[in-house]
Write a protein that binds this DNA or RNA. Structure first.
Lengths: 210, 210
DNA sequence: CGGAATCAACCGTCTGGACGGTTTGTCGAT
DNA sequence: ATCGACAAACCGTCCAGACGGTTGATTCCG
């Protein structure tokens, strides 16, 4: 139970930080504001996160973990065959609510890190290199996986910057264009020669294929 | 000549601001730092840009203008036919130096705006809605243009956040995947029924088709 | 059992520094 | 002499982090 409350408290603080960013922007992400939103004093906040850097690092790490977890889960539920990872990623566009929420979480953490200290993005980088690695061994023609994830992150960018309204119709449009590139899961004839997953890799990083 | 020096000075200051962001990050984009980099005092800087908001607004506007100009130019040089705009955008990936430079300029302005006051992104929004509008009348199947630009901006994101190394091989890979979707300029049979450019638009905004 | 000791969680205050913006003054060109 | 282009000093504010408490629960000890 004690462990539980500690974890809940950390999450409460991180939620508060995200809430501050959403409501008041990165410029107003101050320790005082976070403390107030989390219902404690600045002193109390600093007791748990000894510096602003540590706080933001925790935001990014939590976000990266969620993201990794989500990707793993989607991969597991995606039918086998070439393009499994790419299809797993694409499937996220079919769930606008979940996607939108992850957009917001991600943007809070990433922008906070960017403003405070770009090096704090590191955990995100790590997740991306894991995913990119899986994409390159996905059994699709070269570049397809990279294109799919780039397009999805383009949408992410539009959403979090408000560069364009990203409603479900746009998501659907993009998904329908990308879908033919990644196949259906049952390897169809007519696709380009899929690169074989070259050997010499057996869980290079932990947690990639469980 | 006088007008000339004023313009040159504005650009010098904006260049200085970008340089500060590149070297020291958004967190250190202060009026003092910009003034120092531009070789003047803070008072002098504030003489030209009466507030930090105005300075960043100018950064974003200049960047948006460059971006619009570049898109117009590429469109002009792109062969006619369906997908002309999409092909124009894609062609930028063939010029990594220019692309990289625009990445940096854009990221400085956008991130500065994001940190200072998200509303300052407005000029960028305007450029995007112009480009998106041209893309939807591009004579390509629905969603293709949107996918192309999203993928390219995904690459932009990777580059400016350092989420992934974006070298010319990755750019080439993505370009080669997207190319078949936008055709060659000579309308090939076998593509989907292109949407006709619906009438009712005659230079809705200035500067779109000159 | 009961009180002393311990410890983590948390609060309120303070401070040093940085930053945006203002004011006042200087100088050269017209 | 007037005006625009600066410079320098300054002000008010805000924020990260330090510090010294206080509380409340737990444990230790007699």
């Amino acid at each position: 139970m004690h462990q539980g409350t500690i974890i809940a408290l950390r999450d409460r603080v991180l939620d508060a930080a995200e809430a501050v960013v959403v409501r008041q922007g990165i410029a107003n992400l101050t320790l005082e504001a976070v403390a107030a939103d989390a219902g404690m004093s600045k002193g109390g906040l600093l007791h748990h996160f000894p510096s602003k850097d540590k706080l933001i690092e925790a935001m990014v790490t939590r976000c990266a973990d969620h993201w990794r977890q989500h990707a793993d889960e989607a991969y597991r539920q995606s039918p086998e065959g070439p393009g499994r990872m790419a299809r797993a990623l694409l499937s996220h566009l079919e769930d606008p609510e979940s996607w939108t929420e992850q957009c917001q979480r991600g943007s809070c953490a990433v922008f906070a890190a960017l403003a405070q200290n770009p090096a704090l993005i590191q955990p995100m980088r790590a997740v991306y290199s894991e995913i990119r690695e899986r994409l390159t061994r996905d059994g699709l023609p070269e570049g397809v996986g990279e294109t799919v994830i780039a397009a999805m992150d383009g949408l992410w960018l539009y959403r979090v910057l408000g560069l364009t309204t990203v409603d479900r119709s746009l998501m659907e449009l993009v998904r329908k264009v990308l879908q033919p590139l990644v196949g259906t899961g049952t390897p169809a004839r007519g696709t380009n020669e899929p690169r074989a997953a070259r050997g010499t890799h057996e869980s290079k990083k932990k947690g990639i294929e469980q």
